[in-house]
Design a binder for these strands. Sequence first.
DNA 1: AATACTACCTGCGTGC
DNA 2: TGCACGCAGGTAGTAT
Length: 283
Amino acid sequence: MPELPEVETIRLTLLPLIIGKEICEVGVLGRRVIEQTSRNRIRKLLFGNRINACLRRGKYLILQGKDFSLLLHFGMSGGLTFFPQGSPPHKHTHLVVRFSDRSELHYHDPRTFGRIKLYGSLSLQEIPELSHLGWDPLEEEISLSHLRQAFRRRKACIKLALLDQRLIAGIGNIYASEILFHASIDPLKPANQLSEKELGRLHRAIHGVLRGAIREGGTSIISFRNAEGKRGGYQNLLQVYGREEEACPRCQAPILNRPLGGRSTYYCPHCQKPNPDPGRTIS
DNA sequence: AATACTACCTGCGTGC
DNA sequence: TGCACGCAGGTAGTAT
């Protein structure tokens, strides 16, 4: 489910609710999402400690205390919900963190593609899942030369390169289509064949689309909710994703959906022409 | 090193 | 209604 804007939305809604709170009880339910080594340590390391920080890198969320980093990934269908008065766990709740003021944080994930892992006092760079991530578009400004270098050896199409978390961390299937539409770039174009103009537009579109989605509180197509259980609003601003056969909002041509690497890719064949570069600017 | 393919899951909408 | 089927926002592992 969540891509960078959704994880950031969860983080922003969570910050005022859990920072500084003392953990008084931890429930680990099911066995798929949390591997055995983390299960064994989780109560010992979390019990009696406070949440000092709530961070994000790419699509990962990190809850930090004095001696622990709890790493969460939401896979396709995961989420975090805060309950001010506590709540019985649902069918697909995998982790319950109870605070001393009786409020609770629940991690749920029906499809169990998400993962939770507990580390001791490591720096973020020492956490293996985070060490291979590429540039986080919000964390540090990606320069044009970064983009150029990331794509230089990539003969694969730009849509698939955008999904590669080792190059840029946080873009998923929805925002890859949206970003390429905003940048007027053909999703099938090999990443290493983008012109300087296209790289410039891509650079602006990555920031513009992701920041716009965060401003709207994320995209809620199927099930996304923030930590307070509220839907986002960016699904109303999607230009091409999920709009197969609808009219392109710019030129009225029908939107196409072609699978790339086994995943739906929505685009306008007129605004995102293979050749030549349409030279459009981003509005 | 880059690429292609597979496996891992449940839920929902659709068509019969 | 019930059932089979396809599809869904992601990543890791393996083979080439």
